[in-house]
Structures are given as C-alpha cells and as structure tokens.
Computed example of a mutant assay.
Amino acid sequence: MKNCNGTILVVDDEQEITELIALYLEKAGYEVHASDNGPHALRLAEKLVPDLIVLDVSLGRMDGIEVCKALRQGVCADVPILFLSCKSEDQDIIRGLSEGGDDYITKPFSPSQLVARIQAHIRRRRTREKGAEEQTVTLSFTGLDIDFRSMEVRLDGEVLPLSAKEFELLSVLARQPNRVFPLEELYRRVWQSDSMGDTRTLMVHISNLRKKMEADPAHPRWIQTVRGFGYRFSTSIEDEEQSTIHN
C-alpha cells in the first residue's frame, strides 16, 4: 500500500547507503524509489515527480551536479534537492547549491538527522504552496515587486530567474525590511530546521540571490550583510514610504 507522507527519490551508486536511507524513510511513512545513476534518475524523476530528491554528488556516468541542472530544466524544477557529499567535495557542494540544490548533508551522516531534514523541506514546500493558493499579495518597493501567488520577482519590470529557496529567502527578508536577521533565525525560517547545519548553505543561496538581483553584488543595494549578526533587506526612507502590499 502506498505511503501517505510523500514520495522520495534517492540517487546514489552505493547500495548500502541507498538501502539504509530507504529503511529509515519507509519507517517514517515515505514511499521510496532508488536509482544508482544519473540518466535513470532523470527518467524516474520525470515519471514520479517526487516530493524530494536525495542526490549524491559523486555518481559514475553523470555526476550529481549535472543531474541537478537537468532536473531544474524539467518537471522537477521546484522539487527540493538535498545533496549527499563527502567532506572532500566542498567545492562540488558550492557548485551544486549554485545550480539549484536546496541543501546538503555530509557523509557519514545520522539517518535520523537526514529524515528530519527531509521532513523539514517537504513541510516547508507544502506550506509555501498552500500559502500561494490562499493569497494574492504583492509586496512592492521602488523598482522591485514580489508576487507571492505566482512566486515571481520583477526588478525594473524584468522577471528574475529565482529558485524556490532564493524566493523564500527574499520573501522572509523583504516582509520585514531593514530588520537584521541572525543566521540561525533565517536558516530556521527558510529551511524549517532547528539545526543550523553548515552556514555555507545559507551563504551560497544569499550569494546566488545577489548575483541575480544586484547591479553590483560586491556592494549590494537590497540584501546587505550586517557583519557579526546576519542579513537584512535594506530600503531607503523613500522606499519605505512608497512600499505597498496589494491584496
């Protein structure tokens, strides 16, 4: 009988790891499908459109980053992707997050921690989808519009190609302009996890967001770093006076 909590696709060429992950996820009430190579994983993902994909960075025929890029071009464009990596693959992880990955966990890992991280991502995605159905709110600043129903961000009339996580980050920051969010709170709000994990996950997403919406990412206009504290969505007094929320 099909489990009710959601469908997970696990992509890893190490059978022992796949079986361990499947064991814990099935106990948690998930339906699990597995693949040991990139091309097969892409076909399976197209067929299943799972609720989340666990993706190993190091795959033989087609590495996990290539798989991630391909997934983001198809029906799994908004499906959360959680990378598995070894500590020696730091640069690959940064690339993976830049190509559309949502999060990562380093081997060896605690299966219960992995399950908790997966549950948080799925819960966050469903909350976001439910909220989009219930509201038609647009948050507008001078030259910047954030549409929470269509999940579109327009800068000077141009739609920005943001990932789901980038949109969530911007939404949290922009709903409370000029407020400084500590790293821990921002991570908790967007990733729905009390465990901070590695700050690089958050920092890479912030960096990607700046590259897409800032004229000069090195000197950001919108998303600013408050050294020693965290990040804020910065507005001028004029922006604050002109910012509106449309229902």
Rank of each mutant, 00 (worst) to 15 (best):
H246S: 15
P80A: 04
L9D: 06
L186C: 08
G157Q: 14
L169N: 10
E129P: 03
L183C: 07
G100S: 11
G74V: 07
Q192E: 15
P111W: 03
S88L: 01
A116T: 09
R188G: 03
I118N: 12
H219T: 14
T7F: 00
N37C: 05
K130F: 05
R188F: 01
R175W: 00
E214Y: 05
A120G: 12
V153K: 09
V115L: 02
V180F: 02
R189S: 08
D145H: 11
H121D: 06
T106E: 03
E19V: 08
R72M: 04
D216H: 08
D36Y: 07
L52F: 02
Q113L: 01
R200K: 15
L155F: 06
V10W: 02
T225A: 04
T142I: 08
Q15R: 15
Q242C: 00
F148E: 13
L209P: 08
K47D: 07
F167R: 13
K107Y: 04
Q176K: 11
L42D: 03
Y187C: 02
S207H: 14
V226R: 14
I65A: 05
C68Q: 11
S112R: 12
T106K: 12
F148P: 03
F167D: 09
Q176N: 13
E238Y: 01
A41F: 05
D63N: 14
N247V: 01
T106N: 09
R149F: 00
S98I: 09
A45Y: 09
C86E: 13
G74L: 06
M151F: 02
V10S: 09
L71D: 02
Q192R: 15
D63W: 07
H205Y: 04
S163W: 07
R125Q: 07
W191N: 15
D198I: 12
G60T: 14
H121C: 04
R61C: 00
E26D: 10
P80R: 11
G101F: 00
H121T: 05
L144S: 04
L173Q: 02
K2S: 06
L59K: 13
S243E: 06
I118Y: 06
I146G: 03
A174M: 05
S58F: 02
L82N: 13
E19G: 03
G197C: 14
L162R: 12
D198Y: 09
L25A: 15
E129C: 07
L84Q: 11
F109M: 01
L23P: 01
I21R: 10
